[in-house]
Design a protein around this nucleic acid. Structure first.
Lengths: 130, 130
DNA sequence: ATGAATGTATACTAAATTAGTAGGTAATAA
DNA sequence: TTATTACCTACTAATTTAGTATACATTCAT
């Protein structure tokens, strides 16, 4: 199990923005500093904006800022916006032929809850502490 | 972030074996009960055997058993054997152009440690408790 | 010994996902 | 009115995942 670069890039961009919060920055600046393809980052920022963890300003002098204080942005939220739901339980429901009698049906549930909790307990602010 | 079916199938097989521990079972039985392609599972079990979390007996009357008590098998170990290292820090070293000055260089470290801890704290035995 | 049942190994293929590119449109401040 | 920025959609390349095919090796029961 690992993170996609989507989540990696997204988190990098978010920690970058957290470090200048509440100032704004352009995608170009972030992409350069974090060594990410600007075009690709543009798309990723779209997901983060739709998820309301960042706010954007269009036009000249435009850019991005965090939508709230880094203390109130859980890392799990960022990851889910980019990578989809954390630790989904695929064996449940139609995927599980034995319909809820699958011997492992509770596995993903227990596991998912714990991982989710871990990732939601870590806040963006924690990641930029020195 | 999610689990691959590799990890899912592997964990299913392991919890299945945990439920009959210390008895053994054939790959065929496990594959049928868990609704997994037998051929594919054969390959996955190879990784688990190499990682010494299961033991195999060849030939007629052969099969698989857990290599140790389910209380002593962390879920994280199983997942790493199948999916590779958990939460690797891709921005470190050669992947990071700014060489250790990358503003997010500590992100994956902190995050990886926590996730790893969570997954290593959950034991196989926990997953089969009713 | 022999044969059936089991695990082991390797190579191949198909499908899905990820990562990235290309080329444009829309909005805004100077 | 122009430069700068965000925003949008379609396309492509690369990688990974999932699964199949085929053959071989080992062991037990008879």
């Amino acid at each position: 199990m690992k993170f996609s670069t989507k989540a990696e890039y997204g988190l990098k961009a978010m920690t970058n923005l957290a470090q200048c919060y509440p100032e704004q920055k352009t995608i170009g600046e972030i992409a350069k500093e974090e060594n990410i393809s600007q075009k690709y980052l543009e798309r990723l920022m779209g997901f983060l904006r739709d998820g309301e963890v960042v706010q954007s300003a269009k036009g000249k002098q435009g850019g991005y800022t965090l939508a709230r204080d880094p203390k109130k942005i859980p890392v799990g939220e960022i990851i889910e916006l980019l990578d989809g739901e954390i630790a989904p339980m695929r064996c449940v429901g139609k995927f599980c032929a034995s319909e809820h009698k699958c011997p492992s049906s509770m596995v993903w549930n227990k596991l998912g809850v714990q991982i989710k909790k871990t990732l939601y307990d870590i806040k963006l602010s924690t990641l930029i502490m020195k």
